[in-house]
């Protein structure tokens, strides 16, 4: 006997993601999913932008890694509360892990939650965590063909941070080629070339985050 089902797999994740988003909305918190390869500079970016933002905004960070609490310690060291999730081999964060992690925060007292995903350009793209914005970090040392090779990761990005711009002269990375591909794939995505080492471009990214937080508050 055949049973017609038509049930979406991953539906459980999507439902929990919706619930997470509703919790963020109810507490007027902007949630950002930070994605990119291992070594792209995700944690380093947070170390560069969060101390300034934390002067006027209440922030917490969820850190996802296979093992160690190293990243959470780095975030704690700049005075921002963080919660480490170890996926023990899992290649991505899912909505359920995030749901448990944000349960440890006093959401009502926060303005911004950054969820730093497991370093991975593939699997993390497929899982909604309940975020409002997706920010992908790509370093110039990874090469300018990553958008063409891993399109799902970049398609739903709201912003692309092009990191390690101080190393650009030492690479064959063509920013224009990457910009064109990003435009084709995700015309709404903002591009932020920056260098944490020199500080160039950081302000523009911080301003964008600030305006997203203001917009976020107005909408609710």
């Amino acid at each position: 006997m055949e049973i017609i089902v038509a049930k979406k797999i991953l539906n459980a994740n999507d439902q929990i993601a919706q619930a997470n988003r509703a919790r963020f909305d109810a507490s007027r918190v902007l949630a950002v999913n930070l994605l990119g390869s291992p070594g792209a500079g995700k944690t380093t970016l947070l170390e560069a932008v969060l101390p300034g933002l934390a002067k006027t905004r209440k922030i917490a960070v969820v850190e996802g890694d296979l093992a160690t609490s190293r990243d959470a310690e780095r975030i704690e060291a700049i005075g921002v509360p963080s919660m480490q999730i170890n996926t023990a081999g899992g290649c991505h964060l899912d909505a359920n892990m995030v749901s448990r992690a944000i349960g440890t925060f006093e959401l009502d007292s926060l303005d911004l939650v950054v969820i730093e995903n497991v370093g991975n350009l593939v699997c993390t793209a497929g899982f909604d965590l309940g975020e409002h914005l997706r920010v992908v970090v790509l370093s110039v040392t990874e090469g300018d063909d990553k958008i063409e090779k891993y399109p799902p990761m970049f398609q739903k990005a709201d912003a692309l941070v092009l990191s390690k711009m101080d190393l650009l002269p030492h690479t064959n990375f063509q920013v224009e080629r990457m910009r064109e591909n990003l435009q084709r794939l995700s015309s709404q995505a903002r591009l932020f070339p920056l260098s944490v080492q020199t500080g160039d471009g950081i302000d523009a990214f911080v301003d964008w985050l600030e305006s997203a937080m203001r917009r976020d508050r107005r909408d609710r």
Partner: peptide, 26 residues
Amino acid sequence: LLASCAECGSPDIVLEGGRDLVLTSI
């Protein structure tokens, strides 16, 4: 995801759907 329109050649395309994993029948 990076194709241009087959009709007019415009790169301004949107790709919808094709993302789901559905159990259709048992």
